[in-house]
């Protein structure tokens, strides 16, 4: 027990003494970004306990509360809301917390999907070479000529057509995750393939081959750990892109259903009210979206520079 604690303490000290943490402390912007991500992430995770109301529960909404400005009591009901309410009387603050939850969920999950596809195909292409490599990379090249958003839209549309109408509503989020995930795999595959081709020629891989390990095991156990560094950087930058792609799709009205709004859906609702002066319905979700996307992006930039030995 004590020994395990000592090991853990040792690990913590090593982490705090590491170059990575040093460069983290040295960059105030990165620290701010990390705090923002942490706060919004926690708030989204704990939304059911923090949010004053449940925006997904239609029975808790009162239409009389509709379009209440922030921090001003409603003229009919006298209720006050921190960030105001939308046209349905939905508390904007609660909607943002729940919306961020969906945005982050879709973002993370779609990054995991593209990572899984990209790493698997990239390892295979880089390790096998030959026609396997040409086929995989040609597909990646063709897909890369099309913008991510377009590919995601296409996959989303096809999936919608293939699913029965009854299943569409509750399958919307998994379909969205898959569409964004599939749209973004080529970048991971390219990077992983590049690193794999370098690693394949190294002695430890040769040794593993001589020992007679099967190819799958060499890729998984020996090469995979060495490609994870660059993948982590792409994944962090990719997370902010995935969150923005999700917001864009939902804004266009082809993402998550309006019954469980993400940040993009809230912006779609809010856009209708900017002309009539209810700015808060749009403004606060927009701030939340930009804060998340920008902070994650800053973290990714920092990670890229910190893990790049040439910049040290």
């Amino acid at each position: 027990m004590a020994a395990a604690d000592a090991v853990r303490a040792g690990r913590l000290r090593r982490a705090l003494d590491s170059d990575l943490f040093y460069s983290f402390r040295r960059s105030p912007l990165t620290v701010v970004a990390a705090v923002v991500v942490l706060v919004i992430g926690l708030a989204a995770l704990l939304a059911p306990w923090i949010a004053p109301t449940d925006p997904f529960d239609p029975s808790s909404l009162d239409l009389m509360d509709g379009k209440t400005p922030p921090l001003k009591p409603n003229e009919f009901t006298g209720h006050t809301f921190l960030l105001g309410t939308d046209d349905q009387g939905r508390d904007v603050f609660s909607a943002i917390l729940y919306g961020a939850r969906i945005s982050l969920l879709v973002g993370f999950a779609s990054v995991v999907v593209s990572m899984a596809i990209g790493i698997a195909l990239g390892l295979l292409a880089g390790y096998r070479g030959g026609w396997v490599d040409s086929v995989i990379m040609r597909v990646a090249d063709v897909q890369l000529t099309f913008p991510d958003l377009l590919v995601a839209l296409m996959i989303f549309g096809i999936a919608r057509g293939a699913l029965p109408i009854a299943a569409q509503e509750h399958m919307a989020i998994p379909v969205l995750i898959l569409s964004i995930g599939i749209a973004k795999w080529p970048q991971y595959a390219r990077t992983v393939r590049g690193v794999t081709m370098v690693e394949r020629g190294k002695d430890y891989v040769q040794a593993a081959r001589v020992v007679g390990l099967p190819a799958g095991k060499i890729m998984r156990r020996h090469i995979l750990p060495n490609v994870l560094g660059p993948v982590l950087v792409i994944a962090t930058l990719g997370l902010s892109l995935a969150i923005i792609t999700e917001a864009t799709l939902s804004f266009l009205g082809v993402g998550v259903p309006p019954t469980s709004p993400s940040l993009g859906t809230l912006l779609r609702i809010g856009q209708e009210y900017i002309a009539s002066g209810e700015w808060w319905i749009l403004f606060f979700p927009a701030i939340a979206l930009v804060a998340i996307a920008l902070s994650v992006n800053l973290l990714g930039d920092w990670l890229r520079d910190a893990l790049n030995p040439r910049l040290r």
Partner: peptide, 18 residues
């Protein structure tokens, strides 16, 4: 560069049209 396109559009509408 870091703002999503649709937010830029909405911001322009708000400023120049509304």
């Amino acid at each position: 560069v870091s703002l999503p396109t649709f937010l830029i559009g909405i911001a322009l509408i708000y400023l120049f049209a509304v």
